[in-house]
Structures are given as structure tokens and as C-alpha cells.
Design a protein around this nucleic acid. Structure first.
Length: 423
RNA sequence: GGAGAGGUGGCUGAGUGGUCGAAAGCAGCGCUUUGCUAAAGCGCCGUACCUCAAAAGGGUACCGGGGGUUCGAAUCCCCCCCUCUCCGCCA
């Protein structure tokens, strides 16, 4: 959520910054300001009336204790009370409207974010490794998975519908090995604290991270919209520290969490639907950092490095994109996407997305820290989708395949998988 | 699922209709005293918002959340959330 004061005081800057995202957010600013002006007028009036009532009520108390008549004052205060409830109603409406307007505005891109209209304009800022050369025609993961019975989409569909996957046999083992590998790397070597959060999320927490109110149609809801299945561990993990005032000594907080992720993927039908690249339920190890504003940009770099390390250890060729203004996610001020090379797709696959949300989420979930001067300020929140397992799985299969159809696994994974290859 | 007890400031904890934003203690900050430490004494010590060019100042709201009763609610009533205890059920 953007700071209403920032919008008030630096209107032109906010408007220009939002305009770089494309969309129509920047034209909504005038509506926000109108609402804000109206709201403040009402509030000021309300405070005057409340002050009058408070004073006169005390007077009644004093008069009564002295045995003086109070009927006349009571009548006056009753009138004030009626006016208060009328104006209160209007003020509440204005406040609710303002909050709703603000909740629908995306975050401001950081000034360093490259300008661009969509994903085609995301610059590649670095690459690691190189595409593997094949002496034979590489297969895609669907064929490889079928050959080794690693997953079963048809039977998963019997249970849950299309877009669900069931890992089987060595495939299930490989998936589990990847999860454990990622968690161990991040917790043992990169200083993240492991958390295993709940997956069922209350409505206000979904608002806190920005999924709601705007993206409700992408979520699986339960109990008549009271709770939702977590679309990413980011939601439960960042909300663990909602409505808290943190001490600067404990910052930055670093959490790593495995959770399944549930996404309806409404509107993306037909895109990447083959195989296990885009599914409604997938496993992910997520990284979350809660920092001060002073350190968040440096922390974003180290977070990205931590996410990259997964791919390096697995020997997978990848590239890092600096998402341009037009492709930036709703709550993010800057995002690096990690894309791994998948020879069977002849394409790069996004496996990880490292974002700095600045104070956008902290405002929504009211998370502050006490700074050196004792002032309460909003934290910055960062989050690296520390690697989506099915896509990593795809990359492992497609990059590891041998001419005889077997799949050689990265060395780092062997202790977790218990064998060097799938044959 | 049933019954009961609770939720007050960073913490402990008083307050059951009026001058209560809230006693007291602890923690914290400042000052005084002081070889150092400690101790003692005194003072300060919540958040948000509105107002003001700004600072100072002024104001309003907030005692889990929401609604109600009343001239007036931390206090009375209703709903919800959460915690604890007991019973039931159960992986």
C-alpha cells in the first residue's frame, strides 16, 4: 500500500512512477486525492464535535454531583450525538473508500528499474554456465517422465482435475530430494531460519501481502471466502510478523520455508500447459527477509545470490533478468527473475523471482521497527521465490538426459536422492 | 463440538458508568548524588490520525475486533476473534 502522504506531497512523482508500469493506476491518483481531502474535512469536523460532547458530558457529571439540573445540557449533547453519528458514517465510508483505492494501487518501481512495456523488454543482466550441447535430439520432460514413470498427470486429474500432477516412484523421490537440498542449503549455509507454516490463510493476511483484494480470482478459497489456500509461502511467512513492532537488533529476519503452493492460474489457460511447468499445486522453498529500509537493496542482491546458488550447485545454466517497469509484479519495487535453461523446451524457464517490496507489504500488515531515534518506521519486506520445484525438476531431467535415455543427476543432489542417475 | 475463565500501555497488574489515556511496580531514557560499579532521589517515558507553512502547540481516537445502550463506556448488552481449563470426539 502506498503512503497517502507521499501521494499528497509528491503527487507528480507518484503519478509518473506509476505510469511507467503501464495500466491505468496513475490516472486513479486524482480520485485518491479527492477522497483524501473529503475524508480529512469530515474527520476534522468530527473531532470538533467529539470534543464538544466530551466537554459537555463531563460538565453534566459535575453538575449532577452538585445536584444541579442537567436536562438542558443533556438535550444539547443529544443533538451533538446525532450529528456525530451522521458524520461518523460519512467519515467511515470515505475511509473505507480510500483504503480500497489504495489497496488497488501497485507499488512504485524503484528508480533503477529499467523502463519497458512488457516481458519482452526485460534485460538479461547476467548469465551463468552455458547451454548443454547434445549429440542427440533431446527429449522433453514429459517423454522422460513417461519413460521412467516419474509422474502421472492423467491419474492426478482423476483425483483433482486437470492441471494437477502426481509424482510417482523415483520422481517423487527426486522432488523430495530437491526440496531437502534447497532447504538445507538456505538454512545451513545462508543463515535462513526454517519455518514450516500453515497453508490455510485468513483473508486479512492475503490482503497483507497483496493477493487481495485485486487477485482473488487466482486463489483457491474455502469457507465462503474466509480462508484461502496459500499461493506461496510468502503469505504465511511474512504475515507471521504482522502487526508487530520489531527491534532493530533482530533485523534482518531471514526465513526459509517449504510449502505447497496453490494457484488457480485462471486466465493462463493454454500457456505452458504441457507437462508440469504450470500446475495448480506445486512445492516451493521460499526465502523471506524483513529488513530496515537502509539495508533492503543490499539484501535484495544477497537474496538473489542465495537463490542463484541453488542453480549453480545443480550445475544448471541460467540467466538473471531485471524485470522492466511494465512486467513488474503488483507489490514489487524491483524484481530479478532467475530463468533456467530447459533443452527439451528449447527455452528458459522462470524458476525463481526475487523481489523487494519496500514498505508496500509492511504498510498493509502494519509491521514496523523502532529505529535508532526510537521512531516507528515501516519495515521493508523481500522475498525470493526460492525455487519452484516442478520447474527445477524439469530442468534436471532435460539437462541430465543421456543418449541411452537415463538421467544423470547433479552431484550435489546425489546424497539426497541416494543414486547418481535415474535409469 | 459442549461448559467455564480470561484478553487493559514494552512487561506485570489495578480499575465495574462521569475530572481515566488509564493507579502501582518493573524495564527504558535524562538529571542529581557518586573513586568505579551499585544504590538512592527527582523528572521523563504509548500509538495513530487531524490541525498548523514548519517547529512549538492544540485536538480527536484507541483498554482484543465490531455493533448497541447512555448526555457520557475500559466499565453495561450483543456478535466475532484469540488464549487458558475441563468434557467429548479424533489423525
Amino acid at each position: 500500500m502506498l503512503d497517502i502522504r507521499l501521494i499528497r506531497e509528491q503527487t507528480a512523482h507518484v503519478r509518473e512512477s506509476l505510469a511507467t508500469r503501464g495500466g491505468d493506476a496513475h490516472v486513479k491518483i486524482d480520485g485518491v486525492l479527492d477522497c483524501d481531502r473529503h475524508r480529512r474535512e469530515l474527520e476534522t469536523r468530527l473531532q470538533q464535535l467529539n470534543g464538544d460532547r466530551k466537554r459537555l458530558s463531563k460538565e453534566i457529571g459535575m453538575k449532577r454531583s452538585k445536584g444541579e439540573p442537567t436536562a438542558e445540557v443533556e438535550e444539547t449533547v443529544r443533538g451533538i450525538g446525532e450529528e456525530i453519528s451522521a458524520i461518523q458514517k460519512l467519515a467511515d465510508q470515505a475511509e473505507a473508500l480510500q483504503r480500497d483505492l489504495l489497496l488497488h494501487l501497485p507499488n512504485l518501481p524503484h528508480e533503477s528499474v529499467p523502463q519497458g512495456k512488457d516481458a519482452s523488454e526485460n534485460p538479461v543482466i547476467r548469465e551463468w554456465g552455458q547451454k548443454r550441447e547434445f549429440a542427440f535430439e533431446p527429449k522433453d520432460h514429459v517423454a522422460l517422465g513417461q519413460a521412467h514413470q516419474l509422474f502421472d498427470a492423467e491419474r492426478a486429474a482423476k483425483v483433482s482435475g486437470s492441471g494437477f500432477i502426481c509424482f510417482t516412484g523415483l520422481g517423487a523421490r527426486l522432488e523430495r530430494a530437491l526440496l531437502n537440498f534447497c532447504l538445507d542449503l538456505q538454512t545451513r549455509e545462508h543463515g535462513f531460519t526454517e519455518v514450516s507454516p500453515p497453508f490455510l490463510i485468513r483473508r486479512d493476511c492475503m490482503v497483507g501481502t497483496g493477493q487481495l483484494p485485486k487477485f482473488e480470482h487466482d486463489m483457491y478459497e474455502l469457507e465462503g471466502g474466509q480462508t484461502f489456500l496459500a499461493p506461496t509461502a510468502e503469505v504465511p511467512v511474512t504475515n507471521l510478523r504482522r502487526e508487530e513492532i520489531l527491534s532493530p537488533a533482530e533485523l534482518p529476519l531471514r526465513f526459509a520455508a517449504y510449502t505447497p503452493c496453490f494457484r488457480r492460474e485462471a486466465g493462463s489457460a493454454g500457456r505452458e500447459t504441457r507437462g508440469i511447468i504450470r500446475v495448480h499445486q506445486f512445492d516451493k522453498v521460499e526465502l523471506v527477509k524483513i529488513t530496515t529500509p537502509e539495508t533492503s537493496w543490499a539484501e535484495l542482491e544477497s537474496l538473489t545470490a542465495n537463490a542463484e546458488e541453488v542453480l549453480r550447485r545443480l550445475g544448471l545454466h541460467y540467466r538473471v533478468l531485471d524485470l522492466c517497469t511494465g512486467d513488474l509484479g503488483f507489490g514489487s519495487a524491483r524484481t530479478y527473475d532467475l530463468e533456467v535453461w530447459a533443452p527439451g523446451q528449447n527455452a528458459y524457464l522462470e524458476v525463481s523471482s526475487c523481489s523487494n517490496f519496500t514498505d508496500f507489504q509492511a504498510r498493509r500488515m502494519n509491521r514496523r521497527f523502532k529505529d535508532a531515534e526510537g521512531k516507528n518506521r515501516f519495515c521493508h519486506t523481500l522475498n525470493g521465490s526460492g525455487t519452484a520445484m516442478p520447474r527445477l525438476f524439469v530442468a534436471i531431467l532435460e539437462n541430465g538426459q543421456q543418449v541411452d535415455g537415463s538421467i544423470r543427476l547433479p552431484e550435489a543432489l546425489v546424497p539426497y536422492f541416494g543414486a547418481e542417475e535415474i535409469r
